[in-house]
Each structure stands twice: as C-alpha cells, then as structure tokens.
Write a protein that binds this DNA or RNA. Structure first.
Lengths: 227, 227
DNA sequence: ACTTAGATTTCGCCG
DNA sequence: CGGCGAAGTCTAAGT
C-alpha cells in the first residue's frame, strides 16, 4: 500500500464529471489497484476514488502527476491527479489481511427463521427457502396451521420498499388460482412504523424478531404478560 | 489526519458483530472523528470503520489498544483495536479541503429536462418542477399535446423502485377526479429491462435520455434511421 | 429526531 | 457478463 500526502487537484470523468480544487489530501493506492483520495474531513467516503481493475500511470520525480484509468464498458473512467507538492510518500508491504467474519446480516436471519418458522406465525412449516417466481425469489414459502400458503419476506430493517416487494410477489403468485389465497408475512428485526401501517393496510402480518431469541441465547421477553 | 500502520486485531459490535483476525493494516483517523481500518486489498471499502460522531481512546505507549465508541440510540457501537506492533504512526495537518464539484447527477438531469420537456414526450410543456403531493414531490408535472396531465419521474438509473415510486404518485394524484386521467412517464439515462417491463405493464411510458444531447453537445443519434 | 431518496453507491450472488 | 437485491450501506435534505 502506497500512502502519499500531497497538495493536489483531482479531476474525475466517467459516469459524471467532478473537480476537486487544489488542497492537501491523502492519496491511498492499494496493491489491488484501488485508488482513493481522502480529505481530513468528510467521514467514511473518499472525495474521489476508482475501484479495480485500474491502470495507474505515475509521472515526474518528484511525483507531479497521476492518471488512473479504467475500462467501463463503452466509455472510460479517468482520474487525473495534478500534484504540486509531495509532503510524504511511503509504501508498506502488508501481505494478505485475513477476511472479515460477519454475524447478524439478513442471510443469517433467513437461516434461523427457516429452522424455526413458527416465529413467523403459529404452526408455520417451511416449504422451501428462496421460492422462485419470475420476478425474484420469495425468502421463505410456508404453510400455516390451516395448511394455507404463506410468503415470508425477511429484512433486517423493513421499510416501505419491503412491503412493495412482498406485494409484488403476492400479486404475481395469486395469478395462479391454486395459490390465490396466499397470505403475506413481513418478518424483520425492526419494522418502520410507516411500513407497518402500509403492510397491515394490505392485509399482511408483521413480525418483529429478536436475533438473540432465535439463537436461543435469550428467552422470549415475557415481562409484558407477567404484570 | 493520523495514519497508523500496525499489526492489529479488530472487533466491531453494534448493528452486527464482526471480527478481523490479526494482520497488518492501515488505521486512518480523520480530524472529524472518522476511523477506518483498511487492508491492502478489498477495494473501496474499509474492512471496518466508524462514522462521526465518535469518542476515541488511545491506550499504551507504544500504542497497544484503541477503542472507538459511538452512541447510536439505545445501543452503543464499538470498535476495539488490539495492536501488537506499530510499524508507522504519523500525523498530518491538512487544513480544510475544498468541497467536490459534481456535474451529471440526477438533479442536473431534472434541470435539463425541465428546460426541454419535449424530450419526455412530444408537445410536453412544464407546469412545475417538484410538484407536491402528500407522499412526496413529483419530479416534473407536465401537460401533453392533448393538454392532459403527465407526471414525470426522473432517475439516472431507473430500477423497479422507480416504477413503484411513480405508481404511488399516480395512485395518489388520481384520487383527485380532476386528474384521474393523469399519465406517467419514466425518464432516465438508463432503464433496467425489468423496470421497463413493469412500467409498461402499468401503462407508463419509458424514455431513455442522453445527457450530452440534453446539453446540446451532441445531436440525437439518427444513424439507425439513415441505413 | 426521524424519514425519504440519491449515490461515480459498492458488493455479492446467480443466471 | 448483466441483472438484481442487500448493505453496519453513507449522506444530504426535508419535516
């Protein structure tokens, strides 16, 4: 990884055009070809960047110009960095950094609910995960205690978009007379109030699930019933 | 901006839990409180990070531990960085970097189409931009050559979400008997096939527009008709 | 404070 | 390789 602190002006042209006036910034060049231009403020995002695969040209000694290019379909993405002063320029060999282990994302939620579909509704049995339709897969297809079909849409955070998505699936599936009575359930760690209102106005049920409970690390919160 | 190259193990807990095993990485701490953990590969994204506002604690000399914390409602987001070796540790005062000037984002597309609404449909005249409804503003409200109302939704890239959004606007506006016949147009630099199918199945028209043509930098591509 | 919508979204999966 | 959905999305703007 090469870290250059330099006074520079940056031009990007590609999907849009952008100009960064001259200022002191960090140029970060990873060994995979990623290039990022960071200011000392502005949070998480670089002011400018290019993702691999790239071709990087360096000009001048001391460094006075960098061009980063990328073939993006018909057009070319291009980052022009004009350098007027190099404050620091160091390279570090970092080897391979081990990958990230995540826990708590939607796929994990789907796994747990597939194993314990009763959290989505009483008596629910799983028919299959990723039930295919021609507009995309339904997260969980179940049967309820009356043997009726139920499509379950799973989100970490459910917004209006999730309700629209489930609506589309239900509309499509109901075109099949054999499944015209299918019901919809929206299951999420968090359901936004507006999403809940829209979902219930469309006859879908909403279920907020607790990751710790699904994992069996914690008993369901019964305090409300113990008063 | 402080740049630390160090062998470290990183734990994140908050919206999810994640662990980065010990490896050599770059720790980037901006003066606004942003903290990023970058590997030498993996492109644009940090392996781990925290956005401002944060509280950062440094322990040990040489640095052996960092804790980055953030109040996020009821819970706390937390980044624990255990450092076993500091390879480099430098701080640069960068001052204020001027902001980015962009050209070509959706707002510009809306501006250009507002000036030249005929690209959305023959004989279209603009009534107003950002026409208010109680579920959000319609990008462009126009009248067509028959004097009929037309709501135009503008995207840089139009996906199914854009169709849903326009559908919601049309449904709402049609509740007013005076506008029950309003038509919908989806205008975008790029329209995804499934979005096009859904839009047309709902009676909306789709228009792909070319930024260069809108700007008058290039004539409409007529080669198809010249064969 | 919360919600909505855009982003050079990026990223990953699956066809 | 293209399309589609998720993301610790992030971020800015409006209410």
């Amino acid at each position: 990884m090469r870290l250059i602190v330099a006074r520079c002006e940056v031009r990007y042209s590609g999907r849009l055009d952008a100009l960064l006036p001259e200022a002191l910034r960090l140029l970060m060049i990873k060994s995979d070809g990623s290039v990022m231009v960071h200011a000392d403020t502005g949070g998480y995002k670089p002011q400018n960047w290019m993702t691999p695969p790239t071709v990087i040209e360096y000009e001048g000694d001391p460094l006075s110009h960098m061009v980063v290019r990328k073939r993006a379909g018909a057009t070319e993405d291009r980052l022009d960095i004009a350098i007027t002063e190099v404050v620091s320029d160091v390279t570090h060999d970092m080897g391979e950094a081990a990958a990230l282990e995540k826990d708590g994302v939607e796929a994990h939620l789907q796994e747990l609910l597939a194993e314990q579909p009763h959290w989505c509704g009483e008596g629910f049995r799983l028919v299959r995960r990723e039930w295919p339709t021609d507009i995309g897969p339904v997260d969980l297809m179940c049967r309820d205690d009356q043997d009726g079909w139920v499509a379950v849409e799973i989100k970490r955070v459910a917004t209006i978009d999730a309700v629209e998505q489930l609506s589309r699936y239900l509309d499509r599936i109901r075109e099949d007379p054999a499944m015209a009575e299918i019901q919809g359930v929206l299951a999420a760690q968090q359901i936004k109030p507006q999403a809940r209102v829209l979902a219930e106005s469309r006859g879908m049920r909403c279920v907020e699930v607790d990751l710790a409970v699904l994992r069996g690390e914690r008993e369901p919160d019964l305090t409300l019933f113990l008063v």
